[in-house]
Amino acid sequence: MDKQILFLLEKGLIELNISINSTQKDQLLFFINMIEKNNRLFNLTGFKTHVDILVDLIFDSLSFLKTSFPLKEINTAIDVGTGAGIPGIPLNILFPHIHFYYLDSNHKKINFIKIVASQLNLKHSFFLCDRAESLGHDSIYREYFDFAMTRALSSLSTNLELVTPFIKVMGKAVFFKGSSYQKEISLSSNSFSLLNCHLESILSIPIPLSNRQNYFIVVSKSSSTPIDYPRRIGIPQKKPL
């Protein structure tokens, strides 16, 4: 597995214009192997082969780096609905100085990420098994983070309600979206207004070794999130703002 995947990994990194050291390459390969080996046990992802995991999870995550977003300047980040540790783990491997928090309500997936982070020696990793609707009201985490991200969690309107309470005023949130992003944005104008945030940019990046594009919706928060948000568990999904 390793020689083939290493070749494909290096090819994709060239496409993304990302330079990493041999230790980081080994860490990414280890992570791919961990997902493949433990997928059934932890119910991690629908992507089952090493190649699919590389392209649809690792490159999907790392494509964000081609946006030139200043991750070197970020100190605290939260990956909301992280699942198997995507996109947080690949980004944390390349930016180990960031204090990364992984949030998911699934105990099995959080336990898997704990094992991975320990094996990869990601010293600034923290694990939160909870619902975003609840944790978003916790004074420890509310408006604590410089940066938040989520991938494949829900509609943009719901994403905004679940994620933006975690970021500081003037902090940034990034949402990984597919080709329907324009419709989602048009349906989210009320959410932007109620949650005191605004659309900063939309960045389109091709995913290496695939025919897909990632659309990154970058959002900035201009003032504190009103205390009413996020609403109680399940409501942001059932009744988007």
Results as ranks from 00 to 15, higher is better:
3 K>Y: 12
4 Q>K: 15
4 Q>T: 11
5 I>Y: 05
7 F>W: 02
7 F>R: 06
9 L>Q: 03
13 L>T: 00
15 E>S: 13
16 L>T: 02
20 I>Q: 04
22 S>D: 10
24 Q>S: 08
24 Q>K: 02
24 Q>P: 03
27 Q>H: 08
30 F>G: 05
33 N>F: 12
34 M>T: 09
37 K>V: 11
41 L>H: 11
41 L>M: 14
46 G>S: 15
47 F>L: 04
47 F>K: 14
50 H>R: 04
51 V>H: 07
52 D>P: 10
52 D>E: 15
53 I>R: 03
55 V>L: 05
56 D>C: 12
57 L>M: 04
60 D>L: 03
60 D>Y: 01
62 L>T: 01
63 S>H: 08
65 L>Q: 04
65 L>V: 03
66 K>G: 02
66 K>D: 08
66 K>Q: 11
70 P>W: 02
70 P>D: 01
72 K>A: 09
72 K>H: 12
75 N>E: 13
79 D>K: 01
81 G>D: 01
83 G>F: 00
84 A>I: 02
87 P>F: 03
88 G>E: 00
91 L>M: 06
92 N>R: 03
92 N>H: 13
94 L>G: 12
97 H>D: 06
98 I>S: 05
100 F>P: 08
102 Y>P: 00
103 L>M: 02
105 S>I: 04
107 H>F: 13
110 I>N: 07
112 F>V: 04
114 K>N: 06
115 I>S: 12
116 V>M: 14
116 V>K: 12
118 S>P: 09
121 N>A: 14
124 H>V: 10
124 H>T: 14
125 S>A: 13
126 F>H: 13
127 F>D: 04
130 D>R: 03
131 R>L: 10
134 S>N: 14
138 D>E: 10
138 D>L: 09
141 Y>I: 06
145 F>Q: 10
145 F>G: 10
146 D>H: 06
147 F>Q: 05
149 M>C: 08
149 M>V: 11
152 A>L: 10
152 A>T: 03
155 S>V: 08
159 N>D: 15
160 L>F: 08
163 V>K: 00
164 T>P: 13
166 F>N: 06
167 I>Q: 04
169 V>A: 08
172 K>R: 11
174 V>H: 00
178 G>W: 00
178 G>K: 02
178 G>F: 01
180 S>E: 14
182 Q>K: 15
182 Q>A: 13
182 Q>I: 15
183 K>M: 05
186 S>N: 15
188 S>P: 07
190 N>P: 02
191 S>K: 09
193 S>E: 15
196 N>S: 09
198 H>K: 14
198 H>D: 12
200 E>N: 14
202 I>H: 06
204 S>F: 07
204 S>D: 11
206 P>G: 01
206 P>I: 03
206 P>E: 06
207 I>M: 11
208 P>G: 04
208 P>M: 04
213 Q>C: 06
214 N>W: 00
216 F>V: 09
221 K>G: 00
222 S>M: 12
224 S>M: 06
227 I>R: 10
228 D>N: 15
229 Y>A: 13
231 R>N: 02
233 I>A: 15
234 G>E: 07
235 I>K: 10
235 I>G: 08
238 K>F: 01
241 L>S: 07
